[in-house]
Design a protein around this nucleic acid. Sequence first.
DNA 1: CGTGGGGTTGATTCTTATCAATTCGGGTGG
DNA 2: CCACCCGAATTGATAAGAATCAACCCCACG
Lengths: 239, 239
Amino acid sequence: MSINSCIVERFSELRELDEQEKDLLANLERDLKSYPTGERLQAIGDPASQFFTLHSGWACSVRVLADGQRQVLDIFLPGQVMGLREMGFDKSHAEIVALTDVEACPFPRTRLKELLEEAPRLGELFFIVMAREQAMLTERMISIGRRPALKRIAHFLLEFKVRLGCSDDEFEFPLNQPVIGDALGLSAVHVSRTLSTLRKRGLVASENGTIRLLDVEHLIDLAEFERGYLDCHMRWAQE
Amino acid sequence: MSINSCIVERFSELRELDEQEKDLLANLERDLKSYPTGERLQAIGDPASQFFTLHSGWACSVRVLADGQRQVLDIFLPGQVMGLREMGFDKSHAEIVALTDVEACPFPRTRLKELLEEAPRLGELFFIVMAREQAMLTERMISIGRRPALKRIAHFLLEFKVRLGCSDDEFEFPLNQPVIGDALGLSAVHVSRTLSTLRKRGLVASENGTIRLLDVEHLIDLAEFERGYLDCHMRWAQE
DNA sequence: CGTGGGGTTGATTCTTATCAATTCGGGTGG
DNA sequence: CCACCCGAATTGATAAGAATCAACCCCACG
């Protein structure tokens, strides 16, 4: 393949893949299209007949309520398959929106079905991927339901440190405050205030799209962040 | 099989099953154990090496925070597989608790793997089941994040009407107010007040474990409940 | 008969939303 | 180069929604 495939990279973290499996996965990421920031890749009510692999940039799925309020459901990073949740439904229940300039590859859901027939051993990996995404959903549900704003945001930031796999404590973070609010069930104004107190406490620093976690241990403590959260071990799939 | 199998019933709603598939599924529900109300089927940190099929009664998965607050993640009804989300992780991230007297069948996760090897066509159905559960999670995340208590509870009640598949507007509803609160990110006290205003408005009535929706149309309107939500069509799996 | 869990109700407090005004920085066009 | 505009972020003042605390009732159950 000419481009390096993010999805192959991701899945390789779960289990050693053979060449056929790698090829099949990489095919899901072959025909990249570019979408500018803010572009809507999928609208509510669209027939749920296609998925997307995200190759570069950040995206999210979001549900808009009657009064204009928004709830962000997922934040997608490169290597993720977007739309898997719509599997089993006729119509999409959420929009998919590009949060930065994005390269993604749309593919029909039948392709996934074919792929699983050709390489049934990949099915298990898709299960694990879905389970991991559910774990992120439930963790955010816990945040929104039971944690105050400060812990919510601290937890949210730590989650990205883990998801991005950066050993460093400074990373690109292109989410603006309204998006953070819509992901965490807060108003943009309150996100601003809360980030500001995190800054005042010397826990984080940020400048134009980059965030730096100044005291990870303290943050983990504050957020009751579970170490090992999201560790999907290769062991599992290899048993 | 001697007992009728709830899980076979459930899966049959998604696709016509052949006899082998039915047998394999029914096997997951063969060795029923009884758990009294309040019993913990699984604890946090338990090795995530087994799942449960729920045969009768209601159960939930719940996460307890350091300060004792709780967030209920799922409410399980008969025919559901409990613990699927832990797939891919070493340790369980949530408790599973019996909300009523319960009959359930624990089985090792390896059984699921074997089953999928013997009947690969069932894999797709498990995907759809997981997607449907994710849809319920996201819908509740939207409630908790963005809907006021009245709409939250209205939506919650309507969801059970759909999940229970009861054409009637009156059904068994064994959840007490603390549990409802923990599922919806509210305090038990506020659940009481909110249910009371729903009653005052003539929208619902309830007595000892039974609830009656007096004005479903109005409730749907109030909750912005999407008709067709959770309709996983047989069509999908049959394509 | 006590006991404890669930439910209700009232008073008060706390967190967060909302509304509004201001600043800042980055683009755009004259 | 500057005036302008716009979106994002900040800050203050106020309001709304829900939590908390507390008292009480009811009832099933030992």
